[in-house]
Computed example of a mutant assay.
Amino acid sequence: MHYQGKVYRPWMEADSVLIQTTLGCSNSQCTFCTMFDDKRFKVRQLEDIFADIDQARRYYPQVRSIFLIDGNVMAIRTEMLIKILDKIKATFPEIQNISLYSGFNDFRRKSISELKEIKSAGLDMAYSGLESGDPLVLERIQKRMTREHAIEGMAMAKEAGIKVLASFIFGLGGKERSVEHAINTTSILNIMQPDAIAPMALAVQPGSVLEQEIGRGEFTLPTPLQILEEEKYLLENLVDFDCYYWGDHGNNISPMRGMFPAIREPFLQKLERDITHNPITKQNAIQTFAW
């Protein structure tokens, strides 16, 4: 099996076999991200992808879950993506889950019929970076996606039956726009109602544009208390819809996960304890670590 450059997968896919399908990310301009800055976006040759799938079969006697990397695999032409999914299902008849990264705009660039074909071919879940529901934050981080784009993309995935995990970042509004970031991110999640959400505390990546903005005084890091208050607002104001809350990323101040809305009250109690008693809340700015 062949991997080129830095390789990433969601922490909830730790047990999945990784098949590199694209190189890099089709949107490599996000100011906070350096995940794929070592390569330009490219779709691998189909025969090379198939060779890796065959090699994985030789390595693993049982494969229950496969995650397709790199970024925005949904950007692949529909007919090619279906061939890859067909190959996986034929090679691993025991497979139970196939997932990939997809931007919300990648859903929008396909028709509903195409998305339904992809779902029928075996795709179970797409991991999509929302980052924020605040229009100004989305513009500042150069996401090249509007709030309306995210809502439309989510609706299309839902209509096709594709499950979506939406990830977003506490603290991405900085110290000055923490409240607006929390309010607008919560409100868009209430509209979208994804199958799972993955909130992560901001981590400033070395060499990122965001790091340079901090150095120039253009972005002020939020405090740990603001991060906790953003999560508290989220949990207090999400409407009751079924989704899995993956709030246990390694950078989160108060890691927790479980099925929402059942976890709302115990999670809020945990947050209140951290807000009141965790000494980290006395710090003037969050300490961040590379992914």
Rank of each mutant, 00 (worst) to 15 (best):
residue 187 S to Y: 05
residue 157 A to T: 09
residue 13 E to C: 13
residue 244 Y to A: 08
residue 246 W to G: 00
residue 119 K to V: 05
residue 43 V to F: 06
residue 253 I to C: 10
residue 228 L to R: 06
residue 185 T to F: 06
residue 226 Q to P: 06
residue 18 L to C: 02
residue 196 A to T: 09
residue 162 I to V: 09
residue 233 Y to V: 12
residue 85 L to I: 12
residue 5 G to P: 03
residue 59 Y to Q: 13
residue 139 E to P: 00
residue 247 G to F: 03
residue 277 H to P: 00
residue 82 I to V: 15
residue 46 L to F: 11
residue 196 A to S: 15
residue 57 R to G: 14
residue 210 L to K: 02
residue 291 W to G: 00
residue 50 F to I: 15
residue 18 L to S: 01
residue 87 K to M: 07
residue 45 Q to N: 11
residue 287 Q to L: 12
residue 225 L to W: 04
residue 27 N to T: 06
residue 126 A to S: 14
residue 67 F to T: 11
residue 235 L to C: 09
residue 34 T to C: 11
residue 18 L to A: 02
residue 282 K to L: 05
residue 63 V to F: 07
residue 243 C to K: 00
residue 51 A to D: 13
residue 290 A to M: 01
residue 125 M to T: 15
residue 164 V to K: 05
residue 104 F to R: 05
residue 79 E to N: 15
residue 35 M to L: 12
residue 135 P to F: 00
residue 227 I to K: 11
residue 242 D to V: 08
residue 10 P to Q: 09
residue 6 K to C: 04
residue 244 Y to T: 06
residue 12 M to T: 10
residue 123 L to E: 08
residue 41 F to C: 07
residue 161 G to I: 06
residue 255 P to W: 06
residue 161 G to R: 05
residue 246 W to V: 00
residue 84 I to T: 06
residue 172 L to A: 08
residue 93 P to M: 08
residue 281 T to N: 02
residue 166 A to M: 05
residue 235 L to V: 07
residue 236 E to A: 10
residue 228 L to F: 08
residue 3 Y to S: 04
residue 191 I to F: 09
residue 207 G to T: 05
residue 141 I to T: 06
residue 86 D to H: 13
residue 157 A to Q: 09
residue 41 F to I: 08
residue 7 V to G: 01
residue 55 Q to R: 12
residue 48 D to C: 02
residue 195 D to C: 09
residue 230 E to Q: 15
residue 156 M to N: 06
residue 145 M to L: 07
residue 264 R to T: 10
residue 211 E to N: 07
residue 11 W to V: 13
residue 187 S to R: 14
residue 196 A to C: 14
residue 282 K to P: 00
residue 20 Q to F: 02
residue 136 L to S: 13
residue 15 D to W: 01
residue 255 P to H: 09
residue 279 P to M: 08
residue 116 K to P: 05
residue 102 S to Y: 11
residue 234 L to C: 14
residue 217 G to S: 07
residue 144 R to Q: 12
residue 286 I to T: 03
residue 210 L to D: 03
residue 144 R to C: 09
residue 113 S to G: 08
residue 111 S to C: 11
residue 183 I to P: 01
residue 129 G to V: 02
residue 242 D to G: 01
residue 237 N to P: 12
residue 243 C to G: 04
residue 103 G to H: 10
residue 169 I to F: 04
residue 222 P to R: 04
residue 3 Y to N: 03
residue 231 E to L: 14
residue 231 E to N: 14
residue 215 G to M: 05
residue 241 F to T: 13
residue 224 P to E: 07
residue 30 C to K: 04
residue 67 F to W: 10
residue 98 I to K: 04
residue 197 I to R: 03
residue 284 N to A: 05
residue 245 Y to D: 03
residue 25 C to T: 05
residue 9 R to C: 05
residue 270 K to D: 04
residue 18 L to E: 01
residue 95 I to T: 10
residue 231 E to W: 10
residue 268 L to N: 03
residue 264 R to S: 10
residue 270 K to M: 13
residue 170 F to C: 11
residue 115 L to W: 07
residue 235 L to N: 09
residue 113 S to C: 12
residue 253 I to L: 15
residue 5 G to N: 08
residue 246 W to E: 05
